[in-house]
Design a protein around this nucleic acid. Structure first.
Lengths: 388, 388
DNA sequence: GCACAGCATGAATCTCGTC
DNA sequence: CGACGAGATTCATGCTGTG
């Protein structure tokens, strides 16, 4: 699935141009929305490099459960499970972690990101390995449980949280973060690194034929939903290398994302398949993400002058009233000896390195001091009606 | 050595009282309640082996900050750029961590325990090294900050917490944990692994002659108080190998514990000495008054969608029936061309500057128009236990 | 003296597209 | 790849100055 290069012809306010643009294929790859049976590292070799947008991983930390650990060279690790031989156990776990993280790193897109969830038993080793392999940690996010299991023996604090590490492929990656959507979600305050959510119980918890919980560590869908709403866009492909009961797949489908799962146990594959089949994708209108200004079409300041929303020679003022600037016909402005863009002059008159001229400068309209950003919004609204 | 009866007037974190108390003359080693000047590893060689009950360590975080960071108002953030936080590589940081942890391990009593605080920059490496050296992790405790610095560029989640690792010297250690005291402290429910506390500001924050913060990373006394009340007994000796502004010493003295500090900078030693001299030891009765107060938990609108109490694409209406809005999966809403949070869209459709979306919007439930504020109460009740 | 507005600041790995 | 320039972006709290 090679990105396609298309020729875009555009016309905007009487200006025309041609632009080359790469367009991701609308056709989803064959591996999308499938569960691959097998060991994590071996199964991931079936996927093409740089084909995954986001990874969510809930790796095992009990070495007995992990079983069959392999080193990066595929040789089997002789896992020691005696309590006294911690070093050998940790070494085995590190080899296992290194192997699956390398496999995941290969299939992750350069601008993709990765989530790993764990507890104090394993998360420190995972975090260290992530850093050693060149991943760039963006946040550690704490899932605070409303209803954790109490500490029955009264020997420690109630273990009431788990830790997720969110990392990009490297320091230069331009990962996805839906900042505006998260902020709206959180009543117009930035989303914090601590999330309060109940554990997975009740009807959401999958049961086996005997009525017992099917999977020991089934994660709540709300947790995965927040992960995907924060770090993916509709249509993205989310890989879960330890698929288990398929929470990642169910939430991906519900939110209009694609999933790829890797799972060794047929019983989990069967349960997850049935579970995902019963999920309906939310309507497209509900999946639109609130987008910030960065995602809106760029409107140059000159366009406002061109459209007559601001007159050549008109005086703009700062809110404080302390600064003024004169608009010139070409969209540049001058203030005393300073000339340049609205941003540059705004910075110069304040003695700053930078300034957002859109929010700094104002003009009088109907006797009211009006931000030029509000005038820009008029143009943007017109563009939206015209189909952007 | 007859026990003496004294009258104690106490004031502790805003509370006051008077108490009669018998004071038993304590035998303490010569190094108790002193600050050793020098490099951490070298200085610790002066202490006898197995002489310390609990260690609290706040090592350099290795922040790896690149350029400067400005707030939206263009003011410069005063970053931690001190020499002591600079390391050439992860390898160098690991070597440093290994060295001081080994030095600390030598002086720790067999049944002693150790706390280390850090952020995602370093805490994973510290945790891994602890495990590799044979320490036994008891809990990872999350310090949730009520007032963290925001993420100014909107590129990540607000980094709103730091992580403390609490570990015993080994799996067989019989460490101190004051379970009943912690439970009483926490209104008779088990103390959880997530603690909500403000950062150190205001009068508690030490200032230099110029009125600037003396130390870049001074920790709040309330944090240390909870650490010591949980894991030490009166008269215990607490070692802080990165003493800094001396919070550990001040709290140890206030709570009737002894401290040993190691610090390289004379300016910090002087400030900590003066600070600790001004501290009075509190009577036990004062400590019983320490209760975690629970604020009403904040429930963002997105959480209602996340929890399934409101469906994506569902229509909300104003009481008047004049306005409608559609809910999207990310917790944002849209009404015509208006998009944003419940509050913002509520304001926009009415032409107001502000609106409380919780009381403005309603949904139909069992044929009845129901305020979304009522749905919020359902979630709030579930969350009350977790302490906001 | 009090109320209120405005300012200052905190362990931070904090831009992106185009030429 | 680097340089350049447009332009996007903050929450809780405590202190200071003013009326």
């Amino acid at each position: 699935m090679v990105p396609e290069i298309v020729v875009l012809r555009w016309e905007l306010w009487g200006m025309r141009g041609v632009q080359l643009k790469t367009v991701a294929p609308a056709v989803r790859p064959a591996f999308a929305d499938t569960i691959i049976k097998g060991d994590c590292v071996a199964a991931l070799e079936q996927l093409p490099a740089h084909s995954i947008d986001v990874v969510f991983a809930d790796p095992p930390y009990n070495l007995q459960l992990a079983g069959g650990l392999t080193r990066p060279d595929q040789s089997l690790v002789d896992a020691v499970d005696d309590d006294w031989d911690q070093f050998a156990s940790f070494e085995a776990y590190d080899a296992f972690t290194r192997a699956w993280l390398l496999a995941v790193r290969r299939v992750l897109k350069p601008d993709g990101s990765l989530w790993v969830i764990g507890s104090y038993h394993n998360i420190f080793r995972v975090g260290t390995m992530l850093q050693d392999l060149g991943f760039w940690i963006l946040n550690d996010v704490v899932w605070r449980k409303t209803n954790p299991m109490p500490n029955f023996r009264g020997k420690r604090f109630t273990n009431a949280h788990e830790t997720m590490i969110w990392a990009s492929r490297g320091p230069q990656s331009r990962y996805t973060f839906n900042y505006e959507a998260m902020k709206a979600f959180n009543d117009d305050v930035q989303m914090r690194s601590d999330w309060l959510l109940p554990i997975c119980t009740g009807g959401e918890r999958l049961k086996d034929a005997a009525g017992q919980k099917l999977h020991p560590t089934q994660k709540p869908e709300a947790l995965l939903a927040r992960v995907m709403l924060a770090s993916t866009k509709p249509g993205d492909i989310v890989l879960d290398p330890f698929f288990g009961s398929g929470t990642t797949g169910a939430v991906a489908k519900r939110l209009g994302r694609h999933y790829v799962g890797v799972e060794r146990e047929q019983v989990y594959i069967d349960a997850a398949t049935a579970r995902i089949a019963a999920v309906e994708t939310a309507p497209a209108a509900a999946l639109e993400l609130l987008r910030g200004k960065k995602a809106e079409p760029r409107v140059p300041f000159g366009a406002l002058v061109e459209r007559g929303l601001i007159q050549p020679n008109e005086i703009m003022t700062a809110i404080s009233g302390r600064h003024q600037a004169r608009v010139r016909a070409d969209g540049s402005v001058e203030s005393g000896s300073h000339t340049g863009s609205i941003h540059r002059v705004g910075a110069l008159v304040q003695g700053f390195d930078a300034c957002n001229g859109w929010t700094f400068w104002n003009v009088h309209r109907n006797g009211v001091l009006t931000s030029i950003d509000a005038l820009r919004q008029i143009v943007r609204d017109e563009m939206a009606v015209a189909g952007g």
